[in-house]
């Protein structure tokens, strides 16, 4: 009965969406806001990567909300999983090959992560992507050697301060120019590493926060998932 109802519902949904399919104009979007941003963003924000210009400039407030959501998820995961049971056992460490590989990968991943963060306003990439790579560096280390301990305290400080830095940059703009998160420091010369005003700083804050957040969730899950047998 329940399955039948769900099938009918899904069929209805599919039908509804399919009727739309034939009417919408794909491949030729109206681009009311889009083309205007394409025209003014290089001058106003100065980032070569226009997606980053929107992400941290025009829609920077969304990005703050997004950071907050990730933070809320990490915090809620902490609430759910609580602290590690002292009696729980950990996975045995990985073999020699795995450990050596992880040790070799770790610095590489960290460098790539920071590179992606630092060039977010020039090339595809940015705080979120780089932050995930940073977190991955710690995942690999943790997976190869489960006994290694990620310091929750350190993670908390990094994510707290990085998040606060993002907001404080915004408030700085509020005090300096009257608008929260308005671009500061001038656009600079397009295409240079130090350009686009405060955008690289925001990217760095996001990268550190995302990295710390994901590493924190991972550490919580790894702690919780210590098998008993």
């Amino acid at each position: 009965m329940r399955n039948l109802a769900s099938l009918l519902f899904a069929g209805g949904l599919a039908f509804l969406l399919l009727t739309l399919l034939s009417q919408l104009a794909f491949g030729t979007p109206p681009m009311r806001v889009g083309s205007e941003i394409l025209a003014v963003a290089p001058g106003e924000v100065g980032a070569a990567n226009l997606v980053t210009a929107i992400l941290l400039g025009y829609r920077g407030f969304d990005t703050l909300g997004e950071l907050a959501i990730l933070f809320a998820a990490a915090t809620a995961a902490g609430v759910v999983l609580g602290r590690r049971r002292d009696d729980a056992r950990r996975d045995p460490p990985g073999g020699e090959v795995l450990r050596t590989g992880a040790d070799l990968l770790f610095p590489l991943l960290v460098v790539v992560g920071f590179y992606v963060i630092a060039h977010g306003h020039l090339t595809p990439g940015g705080g979120f992507q780089g932050g995930v790579i940073l977190a991955a560096a710690f995942f690999v280390a943790l997976l190869a050697q489960p006994a290694r301990h990620l310091s929750h305290g350190l993670i908390l400080w990094i994510e707290g301060l990085a998040g606060a830095a993002f907001i404080l940059i915004g408030i700085w703009a509020l005090v300096a120019s009257g608008d929260f998160l308005a671009p500061l420091l001038g656009p600079g010369r397009m295409g240079e590493l130090l350009s686009a005003g405060t955008l690289p700083l925001l990217s760095l804050a996001i990268g550190l926060k995302v990295g710390a957040e994901l590493a924190g969730i991972m550490a919580h899950i790894a702690d919780a998932e210590a098998p008993d047998t």
Binding site: V33, I37, G57, Y58, R59, G60, F61, G178, F180
Partner: peptide
């Protein structure tokens, strides 16, 4: 209030 000072349809 246009956040970031970006004129209405562009910003939030």
């Amino acid at each position: 209030l246009a956040i970031g000072g970006f004129a209405p349809p562009l910003g939030i």
